[in-house]
Computed example of a mutant assay.
Amino acid sequence: MPPGGGTADDDAESGATAASLNDLCATAGDAAGPLPAPFPRAAAWAVAALLAVGIGLGVLVLAVVGSAVLFVVAMVLSAAVSAFLLWNAAAAASGRVLRRFEDGLPASSLRVAADGQLVKITGLVSCGDISLISSYEKVENCVYTSTLLRKCGRWGSEVANPINNHSRWKLTHAERFAADFYITDAKSGKRALVKTGYHMKVVPLIDENVLVTTSRSTELSTTLKCWLEERNLSSEEAELRLEEGYIREGMRLSVIGILSKKNGDFMILPPREPISTGCVLLSFLLPAYFDGIVLRLVDRSYFVPNSGIS
Rank of each mutant, 00 (worst) to 15 (best):
K201Q: 12
L205W: 05
P305L: 06
A44W: 12
V304C: 09
G58M: 11
M1L: 14
A107V: 10
P40K: 04
L171Q: 11
E273T: 10
F101G: 00
G6Y: 15
L149C: 01
A46C: 10
T27E: 10
R248C: 02
E243L: 06
L70T: 02
R96T: 10
V210D: 13
F181L: 03
L85I: 11
E13M: 11
S307E: 07
P38L: 03
A160V: 00
T214F: 06
S235V: 00
A80E: 05
F101H: 11
L242Y: 07
A80N: 07
T184H: 02
L228K: 03
G33H: 10
P34V: 00
T172M: 15
E137F: 01
G308C: 07
M200K: 14
R216L: 13
G123Y: 08
D30W: 09
T277V: 01
A16V: 03
F39T: 09
A63W: 10
S82K: 04
R252V: 06
W169A: 06
G54A: 09
A18R: 13
A89I: 04
G104R: 10
A12S: 13
I256N: 01
L62M: 11
A192L: 05
R272D: 08
S234F: 08
P162C: 05
K261Q: 14
I258M: 12
G245L: 00
R231S: 07
S234I: 00
D180N: 13
R248D: 00
T196L: 00
L35W: 03
I130M: 06
F39S: 09
S215A: 12
L253T: 02
T145F: 02
E13A: 14
P287G: 03
A42P: 02
G264C: 09
V304T: 13
G189D: 05
D115C: 03
L50I: 13
T145L: 00
P38M: 04
S301K: 11
